[in-house]
Structure formats: C-alpha cells, structure tokens
Design a protein around this nucleic acid. Structure first.
Length: 262
DNA sequence: AACCTGCTCAACCGCACGCTG
DNA sequence: GCAGCGTGCGGTTGAGCAGGT
C-alpha cells in the first residue's frame, strides 16, 4: 500500500480545516470507549475523514477531558514566564506545569500576550545593565548537564553577559540550549535546578524523597513517587498537578524551585 | 458603511526521534 | 545498520473577529 507522509494512509478525501461538532462527537465517543492505541487507525475506526495527526491534535487541544477553557490567569501567566525564562520555547514541558492547559494554548498565549511583555522587560533589563556597567557583571548560573547527569551536582560557571535573546533568536537559542547559555536576571550565584528534571531524574541513587543535606542540592517539597510512577499509571498530569499543589501548600515559590532562591 | 489593521486561536506542516522489522 | 512508520513537538498559517479611521 502506498503511503504518503509517515503514517498517513492515502487520502480518501481527507477533510481539513475546522472540526464540526459531529466530528468532535465521533472522535470523543470513539476515544472514550476504545482509547487511542494507534492514532493512524483512529480516524478509520471512528469513521472520520481526517488523518491521525489531526485527530490527535483535536483530542489533545480541545476534546481531552480536564481542559480549562477559561482565560489564562495571572498566576498561570507567571508560571509561563518563569518556566519560559529557563526552558525556552519548550511549550510541552511548560504545559506540564499547567494542568488543563495545552502546549498549543501556551504557545499562542506567549505569542499574543507575553512576548511583548518579555521584549519590554528585556529592553529594560538591557538599559539597566548598560547604566550599571561599572558594577560587576551579573553572575549567572549555568547548568552543566554532564555534571548534572553524572553526579547530580550542579556546577556553575561565570557567564559572559548575554544582553538579550530576542524572539527572533529564540529558535537559535533553543538549539543552543545544549550549550546551556541561559541568560538570567541578576541574583546570587547559587545552585539552580530545573524542577522537572529534579523529579524526573532516573538515577537510582538519587532519592527524590529524602531531604538532601548536600549543599549542592536544594531542598524541595516532597512528592510521593516519581514522574515515571505516574507515567506507568498513565496519569502524568496528576504528577505535575501534585507538584503544583505541593508547592502551593509549602512556602516554596516557583522562583525558589527554578532559580533556587532558597 | 466600508475599509484597514492588528489580534487571537485552531489547525496544519515539517522535522526529529524512537521503535520495529 | 537501515528503512519505514508512528508519534510528538515547535513553527507557521490563515480565518474570523474587534477596534480604529
């Protein structure tokens, strides 16, 4: 059988564009009763003239239970800004910290609302850094993934001042994330750790539940189990939700966790 | 009222990656 | 090792709408 792009069956007049309520209902009822073991077969079995990708996207972004349909509030906005500053355009990863929000939603919100704010703040920061150039350069922590992986000790190196990474450079910056040249605002040179990585570390010697006393580690609120435990039960969102609840129930803030201010 | 402009958001596209045979 | 496939992700597009002129 000839196939077009990966995974797509030859077109038997596949529909494109906006979904009708009827199509939504077909997809929803099919997935709720049969699941989606293989997206390419979902449209066929559900009687939809769509491709698998389109079905998957529609389910994830619109039909999936538990999605919030209201506007993004100030708290969520702060979370997006905080994680974007450290993760870059990793929308799916940011979305994991916002239960009920999709990566697409966050991406759209960023481009339509936050990008401007971010640009403004960058300009302001840039102007400030010029005016205070006589002061010592801001010491920005920089993750060293190799060290992180090998022994979970986060190393920090003085960072050449990075004026800004404009949105036009965003993709490049992301590509360069392997160089870990994250810029950051001024602050004490203290260990910083990526929250999701903290908990998703698969190192068996890394006890997530223990209170670490190593000065190279920061202490975070404890969550029962690791993300992989939740992955096994197919409820990763619950894990990330627990993370958020745990933080809100403690005196920890996002900044504490992401930027290690404690 | 008509046109223009900017914004929002659902959906598409292309690529990368992991898995499998 | 390689090719093909399925999936997920991030970038981009374009229809619809609102506000301004």
């Amino acid at each position: 059988m000839v196939k077009t792009i990966a995974g797509e069956r030859p077109k038997q007049r596949q529909r494109k564009g906006f979904w009708s309520p009827d199509e939504d209902e077909k997809l929803r009822s099919f997935i709720l009763s049969h699941g989606h073991s293989c997206w390419t077969t979902v449209p066929i079995k559900a009687g939809l003239q769509r491709n698998g990708k389109s079905c998957r996207l529609r389910w994830i972004n619109y039909l999936r239970p538990g999605l919030k349909r209201d506007v993004i509030n100030a708290e969520e906005e702060e979370i997006i800004l905080t994680f974007h500053s450290s993760l870059g355009n990793k929308w799916s990863r940011i979305a994991k910290f916002l239960p009920g929000r999709t990566d697409n939603e966050i991406k759209n919100y960023w481009h339509s609302h936050l990008k401007k704010k971010w640009l403004k703040s960058q300009k302001l920061q840039h102007a400030r850094s010029i005016s205070t150039s006589s002061e010592s350069l801001v010491a920005c922590g920089r993750r060293n993934p190799q060290t992180l992986i090998s022994n979970h000790v986060i190393s920090f190196q003085p960072l050449q001042e990075k004026t800004s990474s404009s949105p036009s450079q965003e993709s490049n910056d992301n590509n360069n994330n392997n160089n870990n040249s994250y810029s950051c605002s001024s602050g004490p040179e203290i260990p910083r750790l990526f929250f999701s990585e903290w908990f998703t570390s698969s190192d068996p010697y890394f006890d997530h539940s223990s209170n670490l006393t190593d000065s190279n580690h920061i202490q975070t609120p404890n969550i029962q189990g690791t993300v992989s435990d939740y992955e096994e039960s197919g409820d990763v969102n619950q894990f990330y939700y627990n993370e958020m609840v745990m933080m809100s129930n403690s005196n920890w803030t996002l900044n504490d966790v992401v930027f290690g201010s404690k």
